[in-house]
């Protein structure tokens, strides 16, 4: 117990120091299924507050990469750490640091908004759950619909509730899995407004096919193709022409 506390304190110190631990660190990550290489020697770092947009055709390994970081799949080779935690030892701790917003709402249609949040809150062992639910429902402006079944919600409302669900356990890392797909422009506006308000203190990895939104939101852009990184640049020095040519070459053929 004491050791843990000491360790935690160390981490606190490091966070603010100059040699801060990157929030997500991936080193030489590979994943094989039999002989097939799904991911081949992937390395990157993401600082706290960073936003990585991940592009690539279907089957490029995007989802596998995210699942490995989320400790759902173990890598064949290489290492990863999330907030300095090792997935082999602290998989539950890492998972409780991660929130997922997907194109699937991940909500039970036959439960009300409140029941959904209560259920997931219990799964994440959230403290002062009722208070947290009140807070979040207000924030996503669904307070008036809290006792209504999710089945009766519009697509935009469902997405807002999904965001509340993802933020429930105060994750420090958020995965966005094609969050724009199926949303109308109005819902996208609301979604990005919400995203903006939490951007400061979260680290993001977004899988997307939407170049415009993906580039606008990100601090780093990456294209995966056949399990390899074929493009990876910071946004500050992003060569959009090169990005687009690589994207067209690797991804477009897929559609």
């Amino acid at each position: 117990m004491i050791e843990q506390i000491v360790e935690l304190e160390k981490k606190e110190e490091k966070k603010d120091g100059p040699g801060a631990v990157p929030e997500i660190e991936v080193k030489g990550l590979s994943k094989y299924f039999g002989k097939r290489k799904v991911l081949d020697n992937i390395s990157f770092e993401l600082k706290k507050g960073g936003f990585l947009s991940l592009f690539g055709p279907n089957g490029a390994g995007k989802t596998t990469l995210v699942k490995i970081i989320a400790t759902l799949i173990a890598p064949s080779d290489g290492s990863i750490s999330v907030s300095g935690l090792d997935p082999a030892k602290d998989s539950a701790a890492i998972r409780s640091k991660i929130g997922l917003i997907s194109h699937n709402p991940l909500l039970y249609l036959d439960l009300s908004a409140e029941e959904n949040l209560k259920f997931y809150g219990t799964m994440y062992d959230v403290e002062c759950l009722d208070q947290r639910i009140d807070e979040l429902l207000e924030r996503v402006e669904l307070d008036h619909r809290r006792y209504d079944l999710v089945r009766t919600f519009s697509k935009g409302m469902t997405q807002r509730l999904a965001i509340a669900r993802a933020l429930l356990h105060k994750p420090s890392v958020l995965f966005l899995d094609e969050p724009h797909s199926g949303l109308d422009p109005h819902a996208v506006d609301i979604f990005e407004g919400l995203l903006d308000s939490i951007k400061e203190d979260h680290t993001f990895i977004m899988i997307t096919h939407n170049i415009e939104r993906g580039i606008a939101l990100c601090s780093k852009a990456m294209i995966l193709y056949n399990g390899q990184i074929v493009f990876y640049q910071d946004k500050d020095e992003l060569d959009i022409k090169m990005f687009k040519s690589v994207y067209r070459q690797r991804v477009k053929g897929d559609y």
Partner: peptide, 18 residues
């Protein structure tokens, strides 16, 4: 089927629950 339909199983698996 209920768990699978709206991706809830994925959500459940992402949580730290054993």
């Amino acid at each position: 089927v209920h768990e699978k339909d709206e991706g809830c199983l994925e959500g459940l698996l992402m949580s730290p629950v054993d």
